[in-house]
Design a protein around this nucleic acid. Structure first.
Lengths: 157, 157
DNA sequence: TCTATTTTCGACAATTTTATCGGAAATAGA
DNA sequence: TCTATTTCCGATAAAATTGTCGAAAATAGA
């Protein structure tokens, strides 16, 4: 029998909340962009289940980095061009919001950690991190948007 | 050409700082316990490069969960029994400090996410998460302590 | 019993992440 | 030009994580 007496943190998911919101928002905008529709932030957060102002700020950062287009005013909103959708990889979204330490950094936080001077967990993590990096690098936004469109995957719950 | 304009977060490593400190402290205490020596918190943080009071608190939580023994007073300090060292897995340390959402939770933060109702990243992550869980489950504290003892791995830098 | 040592523990402070608010800027249409 | 709409942006607030401080509690030895 075994149970945890104190759980110090409630945090570490794979990505930050900001990153989760950003990925989901991008996927939703992509599905609508496939239909040629621009979407407003209010529509996005309703479909994605994320806080409005926070999500808007994140999408602003992604827009500054060229991953999504935004237009102010009536009939404005967010839009992702077809070519953009096909070329952007999930790793780009993650890099903008969370940086790259989850798939490049040392698992124990050492500033230098490599095969020559490895941390104790190094050999255990090297394959996992490269698989994570590869997964994020190889999957396109279009691919994930198509999963939503076909009803095979979902964005909330 | 491509560069990130704004990096929102500076956070996400694989584990929280608390967890990194906890794992490294446990490994160092284990190496000394192999020699039959109890170690004081001041010695630990010097070898591990972590803040003293914070590390003490983390070790206190691990002690409450039975992963390490502590003794107050002169000649006191932290100690890990040989049997303890061999039986405790890294996943136990991580679970106490960070919980299990990094190797059990949904990558996009959905409360329910499974093969029937998958998030868009589900199929990409299911293998990676299980490999991470397996790695943490299969490696013992003794194994990592031996890596330090033999000079094959390091705890700082 | 007294002293020195060391963990334990609660309170507090600093930093980062998450989230909200209000108004400025831009845009479309009348 | 005026109005309505919508993103943009700075200031601020709330919450979580990270980190510090000081004193209490326990222990060993004199």
């Amino acid at each position: 029998m075994s149970f945890v007496i104190f759980l110090a943190n409630q945090y570490p998911d794979m990505f930050s909340k900001a990153c989760e919101y950003g990925i989901k928002a991008m996927i939703y905008v992509a599905t609508q962009s496939l239909k040629g529709e621009r979407v407003k932030i209010g529509d996005i957060v309703e479909k994605v289940g994320s806080p409005e102002a926070f999500t808007a700020k994140i999408l602003g950062d992604l827009a500054k980095n060229g991953l999504i287009e935004s237009l102010k005013g009536p009939y404005g909103g967010f839009y992702i061009r077809p070519d953009q959708m096909e070329s952007t990889r999930i790793i780009q979204i993650v890099s903008v919001i969370d940086g790259d330490s989850i798939f490049l950094g040392c698992g124990l936080g050492l500033s230098e950690c490599n095969a020559q001077k490895p941390c104790p967990m190094h050999s255990k993590f090297v394959k996992i991190r490269s698989e994570l990096k590869n997964a994020l690098e190889s999957t396109t936004l279009l691919e994930l948007a198509n999963g939503i469109k076909s009803g095979q995957t979902i964005l909330v719950r």
